[in-house]
Amino acid sequence: MLRALAADPSEWRYGYELGREVGLKAGSLYPILMRLADRGLLESSWESVPVAGRPPRHLYRLTGTGLAAATEVAAPAVEESAAERDRPGTRRSLRGAW
Rank of each mutant, 00 (worst) to 15 (best):
M1R: 05
L2C: 01
A4H: 08
A4M: 08
A4F: 12
A4E: 15
A4I: 08
A6K: 04
A6I: 05
A6L: 04
A7T: 12
A7I: 13
P9T: 06
P9H: 10
E11M: 06
W12I: 12
W12H: 09
W12Y: 12
R13G: 03
Y14V: 04
G15F: 01
Y16F: 14
Y16V: 15
G19D: 10
E21D: 13
G23A: 08
G23C: 05
L24M: 14
L24D: 06
L24H: 05
K25Q: 09
G27M: 15
S28Y: 14
P31H: 01
P31W: 07
P31A: 14
L33G: 00
M34E: 14
L36I: 10
A37D: 15
D38M: 12
D38Q: 09
D38Y: 01
G40I: 07
G40S: 00
L41E: 02
L41N: 06
S44C: 11
S44K: 09
S45M: 13
S45P: 00
W46V: 13
E47H: 04
S48R: 15
V49M: 11
P50F: 00
V51I: 06
G53S: 02
G53E: 02
G53F: 02
P55G: 12
P55T: 13
P56A: 03
R57T: 09
H58M: 14
H58Y: 15
H58R: 15
Y60S: 06
R61D: 10
R61E: 13
R61H: 08
R61N: 03
L62P: 11
L62V: 03
L62W: 05
T63W: 09
T63M: 02
T63P: 06
G64F: 01
G66Q: 03
G66F: 01
G66R: 01
L67E: 14
A68C: 04
A69V: 11
A69Q: 10
A70Y: 04
E72W: 11
V73N: 08
V73M: 03
A74Y: 02
A74R: 04
A75G: 02
P76W: 07
P76H: 00
V78P: 03
V78C: 05
V78A: 00
E79T: 04
E80I: 02
S81K: 02
S81H: 07
S81M: 09
S81R: 07
A83V: 04
A83D: 00
R85E: 02
P88Q: 08
P88D: 02
T90V: 06
R91V: 14
R91L: 15
R92I: 13
S93E: 14
G96W: 09
A97P: 00
A97L: 10
W98H: 14
